[in-house]
Design a protein around this nucleic acid. Structure first.
Lengths: 357, 357
DNA sequence: CTCCCATTTTTACGCGCGTAAACTTTGCAT
DNA sequence: ATGCAAAGTTTACGCGCGTAAAAATGGGAG
């Protein structure tokens, strides 16, 4: 097709485009071929060998659309994330893909780019593809409500990482146990030094408020006063590093805060905060307790171990979350939609003690 | 469908599932509806209004598979990447998605997870979907050859970021001008201090050797001797940070190298190398020329500006590369496949001077 | 009001394969 | 050999929509 077509013809003597052609070519009826392509083990071993022998020099693939057309299950799992340029989401996606591989599903990833309009379009696409189910990390804006409502009417849906605070309580949710994860790190910080100040993330999703509240509760329980820097500013975008740097730069400009401990709502904020720490020369690696600023994060971002100082944080179990999300989907698919409250599965985080606190 | 179905029925009086049903419901023939959904501007304004008015409370979406079935163009662009947990690839994907949005294409992203078997499956999927074209960042292993050969026989293909060194010279390629980018940073490093030692990346793709060769040529041209640490070890996986840390940790253990300059083949290696620098306490922020280790990278990874010290590097123009890749695809689609050598478009990189060198 | 062109409607077929039903062949135990 | 269940073949229909062709309708220019 590209160069001389004489060379091409030596192997693929005749171009097989449809299963019908394959049928006459191999000498096996189309229904049998159909069964073979859906489950190679469902045909007799001898005929399977005949088919596979022929397939070795035929170059035929069943048409994707035609195979999904007249079928109850498409074997497709949709995944919607707000961004790809965040290693937490990509970790989640890869874990979902790995899980889906085992259950023989294909995953269709849709990136909403933080835009509710594109999120709605992504939902539209997945509905029109009759996906078996959708795992969605919602942006969390109010303008998404109607689109998400349509989604859950049409397809089995599971929220992951984040959910809507008041709506869709009937939709399954898989996420981190923020109460546990935050109190875990607050406990550690309180015991090992000053009680932490909290750098909140923008109010982009449910984690923002949940973690902030968890901080308040935990630090109060330890007998300290909650102190929150930038309580979830609304419009701030997804550039967390820049956001964390900017706010902490201002913060440090207002005083010395030499012995402060800062707990960041996520690692990307912490990475930005660390940059501010260095700019104000507040990190003293060899100083004792109370002599250097301490930073802690949340999530265990893949690069947290490589920043300087390496980031003390709590690790979200994204593999378990991905697996659970797929499980909930499979459960909805096989057992049908339940009515009433959705299943909520929250996973505990683990402490990752490193050098920053 | 979830709760009481009395509430559901008030808006969607009758569930419209097919265009046929929509047709009788709205009172407009199916062929006209078909034209509307393919191009809303192709019907008379008055009928368009009638359709859209009806659509406001109907909740109908044309079936994805049926619409792609009997059509010359599917409007699908496939993207295959070796990994999602690398912000360079995700930047590229998001740029491609943004570009595709303008040309009204939908992008199907396939992650090969660094596995040639999965890469072959991804190719299979895209062929079976009759994608209009495929943008592929190949893993680069020999076992991929036959699958890629099939791909380029079936669909317009463009390699991006990396290509095969000896095969598929007839396939379009969009990448960074490694000769320019590397000599740019080598020039700077030579002029501002010691000539750089080179930390090569594993031989996972064509960039590995290209950048190493570019380093050798450039540093020799400056009258220095090329010195390469770990010349592209073959089997090493994609965990570049760990790889960079491990090798530089060993390297620094063998001596002091106080005034050394290390140029890393990419930023992720550099981030690992910086960790090794800190472990050996070789970074002295206030030391003068020749008194502290200097590190430089390549790519301008999104986090390069946030590590400490912030990473001096050269920025790949991933936006331009994404746009060019789509352009080449569109060109192949509309003008047909050309024979002979593929179009090669390489983009220059820009220096990003920061604190690490 | 008439004529004409642009839209729309009717009618019909096809895309490639899933799948059901009835029949025929195969393989293996008795 | 005989019998029977498993597997394969024939036949036929349907999925939801693209699309072509011919006929019917509409609206604006004259």
């Amino acid at each position: 097709m590209t160069k001389n077509n004489a060379a091409d013809n030596e192997t693929d003597a005749l171009k097989i485009r449809t299963m019908e052609e394959l049928s006459t070519r191999v000498g096996i009826s189309r229904p049998t071929l159909s069964r073979y392509f859906q489950d190679a083990g469902s045909v007799r071993p001898s005929t399977r060998q005949r088919i596979e022998a022929a397939l070795r020099d035929i170059d035929y693939v069943p048409n994707f659309f035609a195979t999904k057309m007249n079928r109850k299950s498409t074997g497709l799992i949709g995944v919607i994330v707000p961004h790809l340029s965040d290693l937490f989401y990509t970790s989640l996606i890869e874990a979902i893909e790995t899980t889906a591989l085992e259950t023989d599903h294909m995953v269709i990833t849709q990136n909403s780019l933080g835009d509710p309009v594109l999120e709605a379009r992504a939902i539209q696409n997945l509905i029109s593809m009759s996906a078996d189910g959708v795992i969605m990390a919602p942006i969390g804006e109010a303008s998404s409500l109607s689109a998400v409502a349509r989604l859950k009417e049409h397809l089995p849906t599971v929220f992951v990482d984040s959910r809507f605070p008041n709506e869709f309580q009937d939709v399954d949710y898989v996420g981190t146990n923020n109460t546990q994860s935050v109190s875990l790190i607050v406990d550690y910080l309180c015991r090992s030094g000053e009680s932490p100040v909290f750098l909140g993330m923008p109010r982009l999703n449910s984690n923002s408020l949940e973690r902030e509240n968890a901080y308040r509760a935990s630090v109060t329980e330890h007998g300290f006063e909650a102190q929150v820097i930038a309580p979830g500013i609304a419009q701030s975008g997804w550039n967390f590093e820049e956001y964390g740097f900017r706010l902490m730069d201002e913060y440090f400009s207002r005083g010395q805060y030499v012995g402060d401990t800062i707990l960041c709502a996520n690692d990307r904020l912490a990475i930005g905060a660390i940059r501010a720490v260095h700019r104000h020369r507040l990190f003293k690696p060899d100083a004792g307790r109370g002599k250097t600023v301490r930073i802690a994060g949340h999530d265990d971002h893949p690069l947290s171990a490589y920043v300087y100082p390496s980031l003390t944080t709590v690790a979200q179990n994204s593999t378990a979350m991905a697996r659970a999300a797929v499980e909930q989907l499979v459960d909805q698919i096989s057992n049908g939609r339940r009515s009433g409250a959705g299943v909520v599965r929250r996973f505990d985080a683990e402490l990752r003690l490193r050098d920053s606190a």
